[in-house]
Amino acid sequence: MLPFRKRPFGLSFLSALVVSLVLLGAGNAGFAQTAPAVKAPQIDNPQRVLLVGNSYFYYNDSLHNHLRRMVMAADPAAEKTLEYKSATIGGASLSHHNIDWLTKPGQIGVKEPFEVVILQGHSAAALSDKRQASFRETATEFAKIIASRGGKTALYMTHAYVAPHKQAKPDNIAKTEAFYLSVGNEIGALVIPVGLAFDAAYKRDAGLKLHNAEDHSHPSLLGTYLAAATTYASLYGKSPVGNSYDAYGAIDAKTVRLLQEVAQDTVTEFFGRK
């Protein structure tokens, strides 16, 4: 794990330079080819997992429920041992959460320390210097607390807005990817490439409806399913392709297969970078 360092509020010159260089390397394709420092699960088959974020997590019966069901579909015996929790605040930035309280053993109904804590920032966390600085400082401090309790930190790379959302821009996914990779590599966290999976899925089938039709920001059920499959592949190092979980029949078999394949292909490419 990379060493943690206390940082003042605001991007340092070096951090800003790294992000700028990554974005320059992204080009028009929207993919920064920086390699993640953490390329594999840091915990073998995690049982105690906490997700900390906002409405991007809790929409559509909550990401943690879909992820947990996917784990159980692959290993039915896991139902007896899995302890998944989700702590969400609508519209929240990461700094709005009390990670010390949330991760204290027994505080939210899980007696043993969480093995993995997944952190999600505001949907626009990467889109301004002020939000970037806040997320970087908060994630750094949260990772220290998580590590002090024996856990590992993972960062959830959010998906980008789509038109006609007023903040939708072609380069948003490149900015988001570059930023999450920069922070993840700095603090030694696993980066879960959900945003890249959304982008890849739309490129494979432009007719997919991964975003909520009302606000073009939150995930639809298909978006949450894709996020769960991507998180599963990243967190457990196992392919979701062929997993029997289909949101209790709410997603047809063809679409389930497509989303599973996109998730696995995205994770394989992302963690295979050199």
Rank of each mutant, 00 (worst) to 15 (best):
R5G: 04
K6C: 10
F9T: 14
F9P: 14
V18F: 03
L23D: 00
G25V: 06
G27N: 04
A32L: 03
P36T: 10
V38H: 11
P41G: 03
N45V: 00
V49R: 02
V49W: 05
L50M: 12
L51Q: 08
S55E: 11
D61T: 04
H64R: 06
N65A: 01
H66E: 04
H66P: 04
V71C: 09
V71W: 08
D75C: 07
P76V: 00
A78I: 01
A78H: 10
A78C: 02
E83C: 02
A87Y: 10
A92F: 02
H96V: 08
N98K: 12
N98I: 03
T103N: 05
V110I: 06
E115H: 01
I118S: 02
L119W: 05
K130E: 14
S134N: 14
T138W: 10
A139Y: 06
T140P: 05
K144L: 10
K144A: 14
I146V: 15
A147N: 13
A154F: 11
A160Q: 14
P164Y: 04
P164G: 09
K166F: 10
K166W: 09
K166P: 10
P170D: 14
K175L: 08
T176C: 13
G184R: 00
G184C: 06
N185L: 04
E186W: 01
F198H: 02
D199N: 13
A200V: 09
G207E: 07
D215I: 01
P219F: 09
S220A: 13
S220T: 02
L221K: 04
L222M: 13
G223A: 07
Y225S: 01
L226V: 06
A227S: 15
A227D: 07
T231H: 11
Y232E: 00
A233N: 06
L235F: 12
S239E: 06
S239W: 02
V241R: 03
N243Q: 06
D246M: 05
D246N: 15
D246R: 09
A247R: 09
I251R: 04
D252Y: 12
A253P: 02
L258E: 07
L259G: 00
Q260P: 09
V262P: 02
A263N: 00
D265A: 13
D265Q: 14
T268C: 03
F270R: 01
G272Y: 03
R273Q: 08
